[in-house]
């Protein structure tokens, strides 16, 4: 087994290979995510962004290669261990809100905290807090079916941020939204990451949106074209950021 990665990398993967029922998704990907940074993974549809996020966020087991989180191995964890890691350390926003349909918005946001064993009061007050920050307090008592898509996606963002995870994974979080709503959601995600020292891994097919990131890694056909060590500092941030 190789040595643990440097301490300033919160998440680190080397040579990961993953295929879906024979279809190769990731061929050989190495990537390092630094503590507190906003990292964008860009690439066309089908280049393996979602699979990479799945492997990094302990949802999918890798076929080969290594994934380390906080200097401890993720690729050797059992399913229960990966569940615990996702519950306690990671947050996730997908390209669809994927809320639990029968729960209200407030319950949806409080659910990850309840699952992690937080108290009833603490869970719901954190939920209310995040619903307010995302400007969806009016929808707190409504079920997802009664809301419009942009509200649902904001609730999904609140659900990912409410437990204050170490790393938030956002897989094309702006896919179901219009331009203005896209900017708003990304601003909220990145500012929450900066103010709470969260690490944000953002997958997007839209090079425009990568401007919110500190650093960009391009993924082409399941490969990172260059070595994993800081590839290129994408025009770190556009003016005003």
């Amino acid at each position: 087994m190789s040595a643990a990665p440097p301490d300033n990398d919160v998440l680190w993967a080397r040579g990961i290979v993953k295929s879906h029922q024979g279809t190769p998704a990731l061929r050989d990907v190495s990537i390092a995510v630094r503590e507190g940074e906003v990292l964008a993974i860009t690439g066309a549809r089908g280049c393996g962004k979602s699979t990479l996020l799945g492997c990094l966020s302990a949802l999918l087991p890798v076929d080969s290669g290594e994934v380390w989180f906080n200097s401890s191995p993720v690729h050797t964890l059992s399913r229960a261990g990966r569940e615990k890691l996702r519950r306690d350390r990671f947050g996730f926003v997908g390209s669809q809100p994927h809320l639990v349909p029968e729960l209200t918005a407030r319950e949806n946001v409080a659910l990850p905290l309840l699952l992690a064993g937080a108290g009833h009061k603490a869970s719901y007050s954190a939920a209310d807090d995040w619903l307010e920050r995302l400007d969806v307090t009016d929808s707190a008592k409504r079920r997802p079916a009664e809301l419009v898509q942009s509200q649902r996606q904001r609730i999904a963002v609140a659900r990912a941020l409410a437990p204050l995870p170490r790393v938030v994974f956002a897989d094309d979080p702006t896919a179901p939204l219009h331009r203005e709503a896209q900017d708003q959601v990304l601003r909220i995600l990145t500012s929450a990451a900066r103010s709470h020292q969260l690490t944000l891994v953002l997958a997007t097919h839209d090079p425009e949106l990568a401007k919110y990131a500190d650093r960009t890694v391009a993924l082409v056909d399941g490969r990172t074209p260059a070595p994993a060590t800081p590839v290129r500092r994408a025009a770190a941030v556009v003016a005003g950021q």
Binding site: A80, E83, H98
Partner: peptide
Amino acid sequence: RPGSTALLRLGASPRL
């Protein structure tokens, strides 16, 4: 199914 997938994604155990 979509709701259960979301819950598993959040780290809910299948036993729950």
